[in-house]
């Protein structure tokens, strides 16, 4: 009995979280941090369940106090006083509520509701539908009607496409606000190689995660060209490399990273790539493009203009 009550409370606790989850649907779109807050939501619902459980324990304790008092009266004043005491107060609210929510005929009295059905020896009782179950059914139907009405027959509910547009707009505002606070304005005309070890290490991490698939883990080249020799298809200065990373060379399969990587990350990875020059790793891809002389100049078209020395292989 008691464990069943616990179970019911627990499950009703979950059910109470349901509207919150439904409401959360709008939050997913309007609040991009919703999933970061997911653990908080989870914690809140667990707290709610614990709260209900504590309430139950308190009521249970109260019951025990009442019971011990009755026993004391029985021991001190005898049976009659005990019965009078028992008859006097009504059952505690929670117990009555639990009764009314489950509405089950006790096992001892079930002969009264045994139907005359006999299916290969299986009999059936005629217990009422559990009222809490009926309530749950009605609540879910009501939620369904309200939900469908809100999203499809009112002007308030957003379609998936509208919700997406709003999410993007919100994220863009957040991003701009963040960038306005950051001095994150490195671009291809002002970029200079970084030299601090931490920045280069970060650059290497990015390289391994995003570039190594095509350019090899040591920059030796694979589907993409070798980055360790001094031949370059699109210029070998830090400014050229930054530009190639940023805008890509879509025709040849090099992705434009500007929408997926921050300027500071592109800065770090470009600086890291510069450090690969002359490392001479094994399994190098043959040179492609024009030779680049570092001392020539830092201008973007330096590699191309240096055509005298350029020896195009393949």
């Amino acid at each position: 009995m008691k464990t069943r009550f616990l179970k019911t409370t627990f499950l009703l606790g979950w059910l109470s979280v349901l509207p919150a989850l439904l409401a959360a649907q709008d939050n997913t779109t309007s609040n991009p941090n919703f999933y970061n807050d997911f653990y908080a939501y989870l914690l809140a619902s667990i707290t709610a369940v614990v709260f209900v459980a504590v309430l139950w324990v308190l009521v249970h304790l109260l019951n025990i106090i009442v019971k011990t008092n009755e026993l004391r009266i029985y021991q001190e004043q005898g049976m009659e006083a005990y019965l009078a005491e028992r008859a006097a107060p009504k059952k505690p609210f929670w117990q009555r509520w639990y009764r009314s929510m489950t509405d089950a005929v006790p096992v001892a009295k079930e002969a009264d509701i045994l139907l005359a059905h006999d299916h290969d020896g299986i009999q059936e009782l005629d217990n009422n539908l559990p009222p809490w179950w009926v309530a749950m059914f009605y609540i879910t139907i009501a939620i369904g009607v309200v939900y469908f009405g809100y999203y499809h027959f009112s002007d308030y509910g957003m379609s998936s496409a509208e919700a997406y547009a709003q999410e993007m707009e919100y994220a863009e505002r957040e991003r701009e606000a963040f960038l306005a606070r950051q001095a994150n304005k490195v671009n291809e005309s002002n970029v200079e190689p970084l030299t601090e070890a931490t920045a280069l290490a970060h650059g290497e991490t990015i390289f391994q995660a995003t570039c190594a698939t095509c350019h090899g883990q040591l920059g030796e080249g694979n589907a993409g060209p070798n980055l360790t020799d001094n031949y370059w298809l699109h210029g070998g200065s830090i400014k050229d490399v930054f530009k190639t990373i940023k805008y890509g060379v879509p025709a040849k399969g090099m992705i434009a990273w500007k929408d997926q990587m921050s300027p500071s990350d592109m800065h770090k990875v470009a600086s890291y790539i510069m450090t690969l020059q002359g490392t001479d790793p094994p399994n190098q891809k043959p040179p492609q493009g024009d030779i680049y002389e570092p001392n020539a100049s830092g201008s973007i078209d330096s590699g191309k203009s240096n055509g005298v020395l350029g020896s195009v292989t393949k």
Binding site: A104, E110, L114, L115, H117, I122, Q123, E124, L125, D126, N127, N128, L129, P130, W133
Partner: peptide
Amino acid sequence: PVYSYRLS
């Protein structure tokens, strides 16, 4: 016996 015929 099965708990509730009506529930079935």
